[in-house]
Computed example of a mutant assay.
Amino acid sequence: MRAVAEEERSDLGLDKHDPFDPYALAEAHGIPVYSLTQLLEFDLGPEAYSHFHSTSSKSWSAALMPLGAARIIVENDAHSPVRRRSNIAHELGHHLLEHSFENVVLGEDHKRQFDPTMEKQALFVSGQLLIPDGAARKAAYASWDNARVAEAFDVSEQFAQMRMAGPRVVADRASRKFGFGRSR
């Protein structure tokens, strides 16, 4: 999965320290991205729009959907731009890993139920696309805080914290083991 993300970043001309644009990758794969607001032009009902865009905007982020042999992504544009970027990267993770659509079902409460393994895999790939391991390690050894990582990679501080947890442990252990301080 790491190699898939590295290859996709490389194909976009990015190295591990460059911010990743998930919309550019979607375009490179021929996957149009539509916001809920754009879907109003295609007869999305006002009740559905209001529910997902306002009333219950935290209940749904984005979805990769089949459209015949093609794929599209629909995103919730009520979310912040950094959240939308991670949502799109996550959906692209499903695409890049060729996850099937058969494992998505509706539960009794009419909420979508997902395969937890596929969700973890898509999350892993999105993390590698947005903040590759090498960049996270370099930032950890440089003692970057979540705000600095978030700004450098155009992600939320929460996403930065998630990606930096492991690399910070490694950097702290190396600092203690080899007796050198990390740069501030």
Rank of each mutant, 00 (worst) to 15 (best):
P32T: 03
P32M: 06
P32H: 07
P32F: 02
Y34T: 02
Y34V: 01
S35A: 07
S35V: 02
S35M: 06
S35E: 02
S35F: 07
S35I: 04
L36W: 06
L36Y: 04
T37I: 04
Q38A: 13
L39I: 01
L39Y: 02
L39D: 00
L40R: 12
L40Y: 00
E41F: 06
E41C: 00
F42R: 13
F42V: 09
F42M: 10
D43T: 09
D43P: 00
G45S: 15
G45N: 12
G45R: 11
P46C: 02
P46V: 13
P46S: 14
E47M: 07
A48G: 05
A48L: 14
Y49A: 08
S50I: 01
S50D: 15
S50T: 15
F52A: 12
H53W: 12
H53R: 15
H53Y: 15
S54D: 12
T55R: 15
T55L: 13
T55F: 07
S56D: 14
S57W: 14
K58F: 08
S59E: 13
S59R: 14
W60L: 07
W60E: 01
W60Q: 05
A62K: 10
A62D: 07
A63V: 13
A63H: 09
A63E: 11
A63F: 04
M65Q: 11
P66S: 10
L67C: 03
L67I: 02
G68R: 07
G68T: 03
G68W: 04
G68H: 06
A69S: 12
A69V: 05
A69R: 12
A70F: 12
A70Q: 14
R71A: 04
R71I: 00
I72P: 00
I73L: 05
I73C: 03
V74D: 02
V74H: 10
V74W: 11
V74C: 04
E75I: 15
E75G: 06
E75Y: 09
N76I: 09
D77S: 13
D77F: 08
A78T: 02
A78G: 14
H79W: 13
H79C: 01
H79M: 09
S80F: 09
P81W: 08
V82A: 12
